[in-house]
Design a protein around this nucleic acid. Structure first.
Lengths: 330, 330
DNA sequence: CGGTGATGAGAAAACCTTTGCTCAAACCGT
DNA sequence: ACGGTTTGAGCAAAGGTTTTCTCATCACCG
């Protein structure tokens, strides 16, 4: 059995109340009494029981993290950012994965509430709006890298539109003006917003090609685009995977990257972006920042500030690699 | 404030003790009394406070999961498997990421112990042996997808050698006998064991090529191997990334996969294996099973069984795709 | 009618920690 | 020397739940 404060008090020859005060630096007592208690605690390896502390304080210093993404490629960095911010505040994180199943989700939420978590972060695979986990929950909730359809909730998502803009600006700045766009399914808000960001800056060359989030589609899409716009100077892709497919087709068709056609991806998924030939310039969604921001909001509400609501976007970053190198002068 | 059992008791007009018994189906009482309590509990949305329950029972129903991998590609599936097994037992999981920093790790272990977790799972990026987190901890510890150098600890890792064997057998069974091997750095136990598994079944064609865990190395390695063994019939790769690089070089050199050269990868990392041209036959390390097994061991020890020690391997699986299709008859 | 047993429900202790209150002793000033 | 103040430390309650023990009531039997 772990040592309790009672053991410490007995070893130091004081009452438990005094021991508690000594350990917490409270109350007034002689220095040697305090020292005696501290020494006893150290020697016995005393650790206060957080259950008892939590019971008394009505707090648990825990939050729940619910992922509908099996903690995949997108929610992991979010989770790490959140854990970062929370861990610094001595808050521990309960992890749940819903496997995208509403029943499981409900179940986990119940479990978290039963455990008296002080807040819940919901993360997802993509930023698509989803049904919220409910209003009137006894704790604050924040959606990170996913978006609640209920606008009373707070959702923190990447700035897809701004990311599209940045990609376009970078391509313009490096001297490319005929810019094609190959991206994921149009039903995804992220795909639409990225395309919109591009359009905000420059009229795309040819149709915007909506398809799948896959390399295979990147290969196909590149062929379609090359046929429609043979003199295309750059291609902005909706994901790094698509970009890789595009890069392959370009190489096979004898177009050099970046000399003939420049390429920008999206996600900064390093195993993809770095293995691409050439390494891929891409947009980084700052997922860690999203997680951190979600956690900070939770901490603020837990500290008594009013809950916010609506949708917040986190600026994306541009990661420059070979695929947009400025063409060599002849 | 959440409703307590006291509220329920008051609403039902009984004492808290009676209410507790009614809710837990214990003690003897009139049916209508029990019904009255249950109704009151339901109506008030009563949830027992797990802190109070845990305090009394001396249990917390939590375990800690410590990753030195930033919860990357390998430790995530392990984690999901573990959560699966634990969640079924009403155990919740505290998540910590050490960023591979021993100081942080120490810190997190302390925190978990202070929270009175009932067990700890340590996961890692690769199965390389690492220093344990310490003996004489007050709770059972199990290493999953990583290996403690201390053989008093229990480590659960994939069967790299068996995976190598399976790859080799599959290639032999599909009619390939000249089998080359391109893999990661020799300093990795995983790389050595996979090569050993291959050798257990068939003498490799040419040198075993140790290099990096990257596509780039796969491309280079393939060129080296083709020069050394021009009539190679199959290549077993130490990772799916390497295999992808190999596939690219083969295509560029005019060797068809699988007709001229068959290809087997390792990891079953789906974004890689599926995007490969052609889709990659590969070895799946059953990471989920590793996590599940680790969790089950923890549950057993928590239930009073003696702790085991040593290294356990979990059988790998063969996932068959296009890259090893049997060559068409002429 | 007195005694016995069964039945139903309450009282209280226990888990561990924190904290406000009380109390005794020592010390100060007049 | 005495009243008042400061200092040091203990007591006890609180937090929510479970569990053991006790007690009261009632029916039944002799």
């Amino acid at each position: 059995m772990p040592t309790t404060i009672k053991d410490v008090a007995a070893a130091a020859g004081v009452s438990v109340g005094t021991a508690s005060k000594a350990l917490n630096g409270l109350g007034r007592m002689r220095e040697d009494t305090r020292a005696r208690v501290l020494a006893a605690a150290r020697q016995l390896g005393f650790r206060p029981n957080p259950l008892a502390q939590g019971l008394l304080a009505g707090r648990t210093f825990t939050v729940g993290l619910v992922s509908s993404d099996s903690f995949g490629r997108f929610s992991i960095p979010v989770m790490l950012g959140a854990e970062d911010a929370l861990g610094a505040g001595q808050i521990s994180v309960f992890m749940c994965d819903t496997r995208d199943d509403p029943i499981r989700e409900r179940h986990y939420i119940e479990r978290l509430l039963a455990r008296r978590v002080e807040g819940i972060i919901v993360t997802g695979r993509r930023t698509e709006p989803r049904a919220g986990i409910g209003q009137n929950l006894p704790v604050p909730v924040v959606y990170a890298m996913t978006q609640s359809v209920d606008e009373r909730d707070l959702s923190i998502i990447p700035d897809d539109r701004g990311g599209g803009e940045q990609a376009a600006r970078h391509l313009l700045a490096t001297g490319r003006e005929k810019i094609g766009h190959i991206t994921g399914p149009e039903r995804f808000q992220a795909a639409r917003l990225r395309a919109q960001g591009l359009r905000d800056v420059v009229e795309p060359a040819g149709e915007v090609l909506f398809g799948e989030w896959s390399e295979e589609w990147g290969r196909q899409g590149a062929d379609i685009l090359l046929r429609a716009v043979p003199d295309v100077e750059a291609i902005f892709c909706g994901s790094d995977q698509i970009a890789r497919g595009v890069a392959e087709t370009l190489r096979e068709r004898g177009r050099r990257v970046p000399d003939d056609v420049a390429l920008v991806g999206f996600d900064n998924w390093e195993p993809m972006a770095l293995a691409c030939r050439p390494p891929l310039t891409t947009i980084d969604m700052s997922l860690g920042d999203i997680g951190r921001m979600a956690a900070e909001h939770l901490l603020n509400v837990m500290a008594g500030q009013p809950a916010e609501s609506g949708v917040r976007t986190v600026p994306a970053g541009l990661v420059i690699r070979e695929s947009t190198r400025v063409a060599q002068l002849p």
